[in-house]
């Protein structure tokens, strides 16, 4: 969108297009129509949109986590620290994944491997990126302690099913942070969690991000959690970024009708409306 962004950006995405093909030789169904955004060091960018808007696939495409062609075609440029990621081979990408750009996903219970202990799973990542590291166990326990797990030694030897959803998500965050990435991609990190746990996890991410000057790409459908976390917001609607700006500005003074609709449908405490506002997609379609 804004072409005159500073070139100091940590991650720069230009004209990203993603399309899927459901069968061999079939038509390409483009789901992301050329989006551009950038994240600076230590910055938090929130990408907000409904399911199907293309926000998750955009995040996955950054380190080529989507299926390979012809099932899925990705074009555009993704530059990280001066290097182009989309053209990189698998070997080089493995260096980037986890070490430079790490992910946490929506459902902690399905993203952890149920047959290995938490410690084993985090240790695997640490061994891969820091093969010479000694006393990996101490490093992993510290990573667990850093995300607010009090008895890190016990959790190290625990299996995922022995932990609650909130604890599992903490373990996922510990795993993502164990290799000290420069960018954390948080794809709906709190959607599967209760509001109370959601607040704890968001507070945790805020603290960590401040301490480590880590950049965060937060992907969510809920404007509510963006408010005092993200520096900037990009609103995605059907594969396009329709609005972008400083979080406070977008929340206070949304320009695009879709942004206004997304904000209006959130029920607020003390709200006395009889009906919640819903998004009229037909009307939005007519506008665009």
């Amino acid at each position: 969108m804004n072409v005159n962004e500073p070139s100091t950006a940590l991650l720069e995405v230009r004209d990203l297009r993603i399309g899927f093909r459901s069968r061999m030789g079939g038509p390409l169904n483009e789901v992301v129509h050329g989006v551009s955004f950038s994240i600076g060091k230590g910055q938090v960018l929130a990408v907000v949109g409904e399911s199907g808007s293309g926000k998750s696939v955009s995040a996955l495409s950054l380190t080529k986590l989507l299926p390979s062609p012809p099932a899925c075609e990705v074009s555009g440029t993704v530059r990280y620290g001066g290097r182009e990621l989309l053209g990189m081979n698998e070997r080089a990408l493995r260096e980037i994944r986890g070490r430079h750009i790490a992910y946490i996903f929506q459902e902690p219970s399905t993203s952890l491997n149920p047959v290995f202990t938490i410690g084993w799973q985090i240790k695997e990542a640490v061994n891969l990126h820091f093969p010479k590291k000694e006393n990996v166990r101490a490093h992993v326990e510290k990573a667990l302690a850093d995300v607010g797990i009090r008895d890190a030694a016990r959790v190290y030897d625990a299996y995922p099913h022995e932990l609650s959803g909130g604890m599992q998500q903490r373990a996922m965050i510990a795993m993502a942070l164990a290799c000290e990435p420069a960018i954390l991609v948080a794809d709906e990190p709190t959607t599967a969690l209760d509001v109370t746990i959601q607040k704890q996890i968001l507070d945790l991410l805020k603290t960590i991000r401040r301490e480590r000057e880590m950049a965060v790409l937060l992907i969510t459908h809920n404007f509510g959690i963006v408010a005092d976390f993200a520096d900037e917001v990009a609103v995605m609607f059907r594969g396009d970024i329709v609005e972008r700006g400083k979080t406070a500005d977008v929340l206070k003074n949304p320009q695009h009708p879709y942004t206004r609709a997304l904000i209006a449908c959130i029920p607020m405490l003390g709200d006395t409306r009889q009906r919640l506002t819903t998004i009229d997609h037909a009307q939005l379609e007519a506008l665009s």
């Binding site: 399911s51 459908h221 997304l262 009889q274 009906r275 919640l276 506002t277 998004i279």
Partner: peptide, 14 residues
């Protein structure tokens, strides 16, 4: 559900 869909379902229930 997404917040936007949540609003639809809540309205439907009402």
């Amino acid at each position: 559900l997404d917040v936007s869909v949540q609003a639809q379902i809540v309205n439907l229930l009402k």
